[in-house]
Simulated scan of single mutants.
Amino acid sequence: MSETRLRADSARTVQTILEAAERTLNRKPTATMEEIAAAAGVARTTVHRRFATREALIAALALWAAQQMSDAVDAARPETTPPLIALYQATANALAVKLSWGFATNATLAPGNEAERIQAGIVERCDRLFERLADAGGLRPGVTSLWARRVYYALIHEVCQDAAAHPDTPFDADAVATQLVETLLHGVGTPGTTL
Rank of each mutant, 00 (worst) to 15 (best):
L57Y: 03
R27Y: 00
A31T: 09
G41C: 09
A37L: 01
R27S: 04
N26D: 12
L63D: 08
A39E: 12
L61S: 04
E35H: 08
F51Y: 15
A43D: 15
V47I: 03
I36M: 05
A65P: 15
G41Y: 09
A31L: 10
E55H: 04
A43F: 08
T45Y: 00
R54C: 11
A59G: 05
Q68L: 10
N26T: 14
T53F: 07
V42E: 09
T46E: 02
M69V: 14
E55T: 07
E55A: 12
T32V: 05
A43C: 09
M69H: 12
H48A: 10
T45R: 06
R27T: 01
H48P: 00
L57P: 05
V47W: 03
E55C: 02
M69F: 13
T46M: 02
A62P: 00
A65T: 14
A66H: 02
P29T: 05
D71A: 12
R27H: 02
T53G: 05
A52C: 06
A66S: 14
T46N: 02
A40R: 05
R54G: 11
I58K: 00
T24Q: 14
L57V: 05
R44D: 08
S70W: 13
L25S: 09
T45F: 02
S70T: 06
T46V: 04
E34S: 15
G41E: 08
A65W: 14
A37M: 02
I58E: 13
T30P: 06
R27I: 01
S70F: 11
A39S: 13
H48T: 12
A31V: 11
A40H: 06
A62C: 04
Q68W: 04
K28E: 02
A52I: 11
L61E: 01
L61G: 00
R27A: 08
E55W: 01
S70C: 08
L61K: 01
T24C: 13
A31E: 07
T30W: 13
F51N: 09
R49G: 13
T53M: 06
L25K: 03
A60R: 00
A40T: 05
V42N: 10
A62T: 04
R54A: 01
T46H: 03
A62F: 01
T46G: 03
